[in-house]
Every structure is written in structure tokens, then in C-alpha cells.
Amino acid sequence: MDYNALLLTTTEIGFQLLKNGAETYRVEESLTYVLKAYNRELTDINIFAIPSCVIVSFTTTAGDSYTKQKRVLNRSQNIDRIIQINSLCRYISAHHPDIDYINQNLRHIENSKRYPYKMQLLANCIVGFVFTVFYGGSLFDAVIGAVIGALLQLNSSLLKRFRMNAFTTTVFNSAMIAAVAILAHKLGFVTRYDSIIIACYMLLFPGVALTNAARDFIAGDVLSGTIRFVEALLVATSIALGSGITLKLLL
């Protein structure tokens, strides 16, 4: 039994789960299942995960102790990958495949593509359009909302290159939304700039952090829950901050 390979693979699974935005209790549970399924002789299996780090450690029957830790620096929400890794973990705990097989599958999942860029742009447009109507804008306002939705996607991928943290990115994005909406209002295109701004907030809102915080609290993981909750609060504050400053300056 190559314990080192087992350690590396398990840590990689945990890393991938956290990186794509899974809850931390899911990471801890899945890795424990994987290790237990793999080798019944391992004792003292300890997995510790917080949203930005995962630590895997176990002891073999010979008394050797193995530990590896991996930091998770960039996180983004990719639900499809979480689903794939989750079913891989189910498969592992039922069928105990080779480690090579797991690694191959992990690499395959890691390389799985998101939707094409144009389709993501279109999706953002639809969100902007539909929510502007929902919050009481006219159809013409909604067109501007759609344009801002697309701009948001372009702006996010631009800001990614500067490697800013989530809060600065959110402040910039939210300031951009407000600036374009108010500019369109001043030029006379738009009657209700507030519904446009609220509609585009939806693309920035930390709903994921809030959901995961609640779910981590249930699992008894108060530390991770708190981290996510504070994250949600900070992102919400930066949304308000970015558009607030712009509103104050331009209006």
C-alpha cells in the first residue's frame, strides 16, 4: 500500500472540493469516507478543513504518521465540478478503485470546461434584463440592465488578472454598475436607474457564502460557518460601498 500516494490523492480531492466552493463539512466527511473505504488499517484519521485550507492526517498500523496540508487561495463557484467530485467519492467508497484511476478521474474533472464565454455573457444579460423588469423598470431600462450584466462579466475577467481580493473586486464591480446606470440616466435613456442597480446587485450577491455558512453551522463547524458569514457580510458591505460612493459622486 502506497500511503504517500493515498495521502496526495485525498488532499487533492479536498483541495478541489474547497476550490469549487463546497461546504467544509462536506470536504471533511467525504475525505473520511474515502480514507476509511480505502484501507481499514488506517487509524487516527483526522481531516480538518476551513474555507481556505485543508489538512489530512492518518496513522498506519506500522505506526507511521502521514500529514499533508494544502492552502486554497482562489475560490470560485463551480457546482458541476462539486457534483462530479461528489459522485467520484461515492464511487470510491463503494468500489475501492486504484489510486491511478482516481487521479485520472480527478484530472478529467479538473479539465472539464465551464460554459463557453459567450454563453456566460448571454446568461448575465438575461439576468440583468429579467431582474430589471422584476424590480419595476421599463423594457428600455431592462436593455441597459442587460448591457450592464454583460459588462459585469467582462469587468470581472479583467479584474481577475490583477489578482485582487474578493472585496476590492466587488467594490469595483458595484461602482461600475452604478456609474453606467447613472450615466445612462443622465443621457436620458433610463427612467429608473435604481431598478437597474438592484437587478445587477443580484449577480454580485453573496448568496453562496450565506447558504454555505448556514449549512456549516448545522454540521457543527462553527469556525467555518463564522468565516463564511463574515465573508457574506463583507461582500454585502462592499456592494453597498461601491455603488454608494459612485451615487454620491455622480448624482
Binding site: 462539486i82 457534483i83 461528489n86 461515492r90 438592484i198
Partner: peptide, 23 residues
């Protein structure tokens, strides 16, 4: 469907998030 619950939960609460209140 044997998939993680947040798949649906994250999307389902989107219409509830207090965007207009924040504004």
C-alpha cells in the same frame, strides 16, 4: 437525484436575497 443539496439551494434562494433592501 443524489447530488449535493446546495446545487438547488443556492439558486432557489436567489429571488429572496435582499438586494432592494441593501440598495
Amino acid at each position: 437525484l443524489k447530488v449535493p443539496a446546495p446545487t438547488f439551494l443556492i439558486i432557489s434562494i436567489i429571488p429572496l436575497v435582499p438586494g432592494s433592501n441593501l440598495y
